[in-house]
Design a protein around this nucleic acid. Sequence first.
RNA 1: GGGGUCGUAGUUCAGUUGGUUAGAACGCAUGCCUGUCACGCAUGAGGUCGCGAGUUCGAGUCUCGUCGGCCCCGCCA
Length: 582
Amino acid sequence: MAEKKLLKRETYCGSVREEHAGRTVTVYGWVNNMRELGGLTFIDLRDREGLLQIVVNETFADPGLLKRIGKETVLAVSGQVARRTKPNPDLPSGQVELVAQRIDILAVSEVPPFVPENRGNVSEELRFKYRYIDMRNLAMQRNFKLRSKVNLLARNFLDHEGFLDIETPILTNATPEGARDYLVPSRIYKGKMFALPQSPQQFKQLLMVAGFERYYQITRCFRDEDLRADRQPEFTQIDIEMSFSEPDELFGIIERLVREIFALRGFDVTLPFRRLSYCDAMARYGSDKPDLRIPYEIEDFTAEAASWKSDLLDSALAKGAKVKGLVIPEAGSYSRKQLDEINETAKKLGGKGVIWMKKAEDGYKSSLKVAPDAIATLFQKRQIAPGSLVLLVADSEAPALLLTGKLREHLGKKFLEKNRLEFLWVTDFPLFFFNEEEKRLDSNHHPFTAPCSEDLHLLDSQPLEVKAIAYDLVLNGIEIGGGSKRIHDIALQKKIFQMLNLEEKDIEEKFGFFLNALKFGAPPHLGIALGFDRLIMLLLGEDSIREIIAFPKTTSSLCLLTGSPSSVSQRQLDELGIAIKN
RNA sequence: GGGGUCGUAGUUCAGUUGGUUAGAACGCAUGCCUGUCACGCAUGAGGUCGCGAGUUCGAGUCUCGUCGGCCCCGCCA
């Protein structure tokens, strides 16, 4: 059979408008729905741009053809565009319709397990298995179109700023620090492994040593850790590195980039973004990625608490506890049951519980045995609105702040407006934290992060007090980026490795090539990586990163479409010199 | 690794105290219908109650295990 050539498409279904009226066009698409009214049939034909109503009336030569058409059948339809006598205002193409003169069935479809239009009412499990049907949905098509646009915008923007797109290896070395690696066995060197990059960190730093000065890459990263609504084992980041610069300049570039990205959906992002040191973020929000849309902050009640004559609090205070609290607007009316639930939540979050205080109709009430007068005084002195709920947590400072911070986010959900954007730079992270499990220092960011120069003298005496030149970009409580100024001095880099308790042998084996590069004129440099998927998710107001990744994995790291990961043949294993245990 | 929650027709769900033949809506099939756009009307087909074991005279329902989806904690330099 001779190959039948397709006609050139002049217009998409979803793009047909009044100006096409009278013209003869050919469109291609999938049958979204069909309505048969006896001698008259309507077909909603769908392509990536939208729907177009096709009319099949008595002028159509082959009505028997309709019997072979069902949902998701792929058609080519030629005919004349006509103005509708009764337009459909719900459809962008609703002023017109296409009167079919010729219909070709290009592909048939079995009855689909669900129709794209109805994806919102179908389990995610089924949508993943038939992801290609799921993505026919016009909202999904919009998501991926926007994702593509953002990608292009970022490239153009960064190119314009003098950044070069340079690719780095996907097959690279396992890293001793950080997340679990995905390993790839080497066939030629049996027993040795490549690892997929958790980020191109060392390569981009080497590109700075190589003198490119400004690098970017929109690239895949891999981390073998458990998944969440905003976490996938492979994800994309906009990776950026630049030489001879300071954070202020980088912040400016990122802010303008983010502003342009959000303008694609009509957001007017005000610059510059707010900045908060890690210390302040923890003190005020109990989180290093606070959602600033929530209208209340953590307050310190330690001084007042000392005067309440509560045995419970007094014994805690004697041990050096702090009393941290929240004043939550409009929560004073919570029922006893709701307050008990908050207490349960606090316990689930790892706390001992919370104390609540409120003003009821018959006076001040509290879950703590304390004189009502004391509460009244507190409400007056702090000018707490009568409808508010006061929640208190007594514990050592750090855990008290963490718990209060979690409660702040948990109880603040009703204040979250989807179309409000609160960007925030969190800066001055501690360089190290103490790894309780392994009883050693660990990098907060990564071991290439530069300490603040004014804290250098504390490295030996009080390493936990040393601040790093490290920063995170936070949007509405979600970390969308992070970076740091890097160490470009070999002596300092060696010292940091040693402080992290890395064996001399490991340093040499894992980072020898990198330390070597620092010997040959490494310029001062800094960088950042933006989580591309999270950015798109927030841009689109989606709640899950899976909505904007074409073929995502489930929360247990499976691909329901392809069935990966899967077994491999004995021959493949033999070639790699690998034996599977059990 | 831990906690929560869900799994019944193609889909979304209901299913009483453990009790006869497991229901509804949508979808699907067939027929009728010339202005529908959630078309309408009529008729019909469609079930390994995720899987396995146990308790019981009897299990969709109770117990244990297991597989899978989602959310959270840990983890994510």
